[in-house]
């Protein structure tokens, strides 16, 4: 199943290296001077209030928005490349193969008029799979992994609950075996009970596939359980970053201290 290589080969080469990334909306700051390295198998959480720039940053990293300055260097199969300056066609190919993007609202990441199996199969066909039997078999396998019963394969996502739609979106994204997954509030808008199940699923997938992930959320409990490292943003700047439990248990920045002390205890 899972092999030791993922950890023993903890390469010194970062999978993603972000250097001095800035994005402005006119005079307003989207995000400014963001730098970090993400290594294979690592999960990075980005937290901050609404308008802190965390979604802008994620969009710039995933190539949905063009940053004004800075580099986003991804370790492609052909070696490290700055995705900001690469051609559109090449970046799209990365988005189909090595990257995945899980939207907060599953409707933004799924094709609502296509069956569940079709949603998963489409990603496979985009990378060249042609054999119908293989595609369907893989789709069934992935629906199983995200705990969607095989007899729902021909149903459209519109007939699914919110939690199922989110799990389908995850299956659609991970079926091609990406190396880096961007997630924008993946558990937002879900019931707490569904959220717990999704968290467990994500942890398992990260571990088994050796995925790296960048998760934007405002939920500190989610990052504590999922993220190895944490980045705190405020007003477009990264005010603090470090090991997740260090940032949460011994926050250094004024804003992080406020954030951590504002969480309601259950």
């Amino acid at each position: 199943m899972k092999d030791l290589d993922i950890w023993t080969s903890m390469k010194t080469q970062p999978l993603l290296s972000v250097q001095g990334l800035s994005k402005f909306y006119g005079a307003r700051i989207g995000c400014d001077a963001v730098s970090f390295d993400l290594y294979p198998g690592e999960v990075l959480g980005i937290v901050g209030e609404s308008g802190s720039g965390k979604s802008t940053l994620l969009s710039c990293l995933a190539g949905h928005l063009a940053p004004d300055t800075g580099k986003v260097i991804f370790d492609t199969v052909d070696g490290p490349r700055d995705t900001v300056v690469m051609g559109e066609a090449e970046r799209r190919r990365l988005a189909r193969t090595d990257w995945a993007y899980v939207h907060q609202n599953p409707r933004d990441g799924l094709r609502m008029g296509v069956s569940a199996g079709g949603n998963v199969g489409e990603r496979l066909m985009a990378v060249g799979a042609r054999h119908y039997g293989d595609i369907r078999a893989q789709a069934v396998d992935w629906l199983g992994r995200v705990e969607i019963a095989a007899d729902r394969i021909d149903d459209r996502p519109s007939a699914f609950s919110g939690g199922m739609q989110q799990r389908l979106q995850i299956a659609r994204n991970l079926v091609t075996g990406p190396r880096l997954v961007f997630m924008d509030e993946p558990t937002g808008g879900l019931d707490v009970s569904v959220q717990a199940r999704l968290l467990d699923l994500l942890r398992g997938l990260v571990r088994e596939m050796g995925l790296s992930a960048i998760i934007v959320t405002h939920d500190l409990a989610v990052v504590r359980l999922l993220a190895d490292r944490l980045m705190v943003m405020k007003g477009g700047y990264v005010v603090e970053q470090g090991l997740t439990d260090q940032v949460l248990d011994d926050p250094q920045h004024e804003y992080t201290q406020l954030l951590v002390s504002s969480v309601l205890q259950v």
Binding site: E42, A196, L225, D228, Q246
Partner: peptide, 26 residues
Amino acid sequence: APREIIALRRGTLGYVSQFLRVVPRV
């Protein structure tokens, strides 16, 4: 660096704290 500490905790350093923190329903 954080990743060195993560690797240390994975194989070398164990910790039994007074609090159990787990993903619910696991």
